[in-house]
Design a binder for these strands. Structure first.
Lengths: 185, 185
DNA sequence: CACAAGTTTCAGGAATTACTGAAAATTGAA
DNA sequence: TTCAATTTTCAGTAATTCCTGAAACTTGTG
């Protein structure tokens, strides 16, 4: 491994814990990500000096995250791995998985808690707070869904507009008002 | 603690590890979040049956995350804690902190790696991949900055529009083309 | 200043999570 | 079906992270 690749790989190892994956998994992903060609588990184990079984587990986790893809070559039974190249696709995948793992369970819990009837004033206050939290999370995730449905090109445009988006909003308000349409609330 | 509050608190404990904080810290936050009044460290320790020192460490971490706020009452030397009530503010804070801790370090590493000159073809390919990653992260974080600068009301409108935002983009394109302005690329 | 209330630090033990090697399972080819 | 190549599982150990109690520190008050 060249020093350049080595530093990239070890950074992912160190950050892994902050990102909710472990050191090994982070390094494996980094190595696959920068490799020009798909690589197999033995190559990974050798490069990173991990046990073969550790690599196997790490790859399983990366597949569960849908961050790596399996490839086969003719006359070679070994499994090779590559990381999808489209950065947007990776981002989308990551966002979806994090949502599924980190947000949905909380939404369910909140929904259940809001169904209970609160006997005490304490409980009523707690439910009020939970309602706030639930509302925000739902608003955010719905928006995110909408955004995700946009194709990469549109998304790029939208992002390119940045904060000037509020000018656009004002503008459409004016048009609607001028044409007698019901204004946004 | 009522069953309602208990279930909320323990959910935050369980999710804590997925969110990059530990069980204790998650539970402490949850308890402060739903409390009608600010509470002090001893009350937290008693409710959650944690050692006083554990609570102290947890509170320190929550303060580092800017998720809790310190309050004092007259004739009482103890420190009381409350969680900001505006859900949007909480979201903003969380996003800023995560960015600082989880994204900025990676951006720095990538920038440094892209400055190195790549000797081998392998390194050149790796740099290409890193450039992709860097570009995406920067685009996302810049956009996020822009969005965060919007006030809550505008943000709400934007989110309310959801995916119809692309219609708006098409529409402005048409106007610009009709008026002879240079179209967006 | 002396003291008491309150908070933080920290070394060591407890609990959790990660990693390994050996053995089992799977897979494709003969 | 048998065999060899490859991958996965799993029990035990290593490493890390978490939590506690005791001691040290800080702060406001008489």
């Amino acid at each position: 491994m060249t020093p350049l690749v080595r530093s990239f790989v070890s950074h992912f190892g160190e950050m892994g814990s902050r990102w909710g994956i472990n050191r090994t998994v982070g390094q494996i992903y980094a190595l696959i990500y920068v490799s020009a060609e798909p690589i197999n588990a033995d190559q990974i184990a050798e490069e990173l000096e991990f046990s073969r079984s550790n690599v196997s587990m790490g790859l399983k986790e990366l597949q569960a995250w849908r961050l790596v893809r399996l490839r086969h070559f003719p006359n070679d039974r070994r499994e090779y791995f590559e990381a999808p190249g489209d950065a947007w696709e990776v981002f989308r995948t990551l966002a979806e998985e994090r949502r599924r793992r980190e947000i949905e369970p909380t939404l369910s819990m909140l929904r259940a808690a809001l169904m209970d009837d609160a006997a005490s004033a304490e409980d009523r206050h707690a439910q009020e707070r939970m309602r706030d939290m639930h509302g925000l999370i739902e608003q955010l995730t719905n928006w995110f869904d909408d955004i995700q449905r946009l194709d990469s090109a549109t998304l790029s445009k939208l992002m390119g507009m940045g904060s000037t988006v509020h000018k656009l909003l004002d503008f459409t308000d004016k048009i609607k008002r001028a044409t007698g349409a019901k204004p946004r609330t």
